[in-house]
Amino acid sequence: MLFIAFLLCIWEISVRLAEIPHWLLPAPSRIFKEATQSYDTFFPHVMATIQLALLGLTIGVLCGLSVAILLHRFVFIRELLYPILIMSQNIPVLVLAPLLIIWFGFGLLPKLIIICLVCFFPIVIATMDGFRQTPAELKHYFQMIGASKSQLFWKLEWPYAYPAIFSGVKIAATYSVMGAVIAEWLGAKKGIGVYMTLSQSSFRTDRVFVAIFAIILLSLLLFYLIRLLEQLFVKGRGADVTYSKH
């Protein structure tokens, strides 16, 4: 925190000393002033982005978890889909965006698909890793006490993967805000992304910065929200600690 304050100070001082024009790089004080002044017009945009990001994240997490479970539990599905999944990870989502708009128009659906796609991979990969990390001795123990395959999964591998799942969701949460903003660039009525494009075309660099800071804050907020959920769900160890192997 202190370091961030320090950086802001340097920024402020160098902008003033070098007399950089404010449409090129506004000083933090100017950005802050703009933020408070245009709060009323800006706030609805922020709310729109939050809604979009949360909805997309939720759907992305649910899809990611379902796919991870399917891939983990059914070997033939895994052999079929996993290579495709890894390959498709290399396609930047941005490239797909124009296509999605051609196919689905400017409504909510293509935007949700973009966010979903962005959130999907970190969840699938982290979840599958979590399943695979279940110690062999625990799996052996479950077999010895006569657990069925589905009991082995739901009572052992699934809860064992919680910490891994949550680290995936944390990454996905930050991505979801970015995904939402990108989706809004491509066409929307409201949202931080829209606000950014408008400000940019009228050279209101201060407003662009307001939007950037809003995005950073939102990402952080979502991150801590997920951390909170993690602390509620992951029992027996502090958050951020994977279960130790004996």
């Binding site: 625990l138 123990y141 809860p159 992951v234 029992k235 027996g236 160890r237 279960y243 130790s244 004996h246």
Partner: peptide
């Protein structure tokens, strides 16, 4: 078993 194999959660 040799290890306690208790579920940490």
């Amino acid at each position: 078993p040799q290890q306690p194999c208790l579920l940490p959660w």
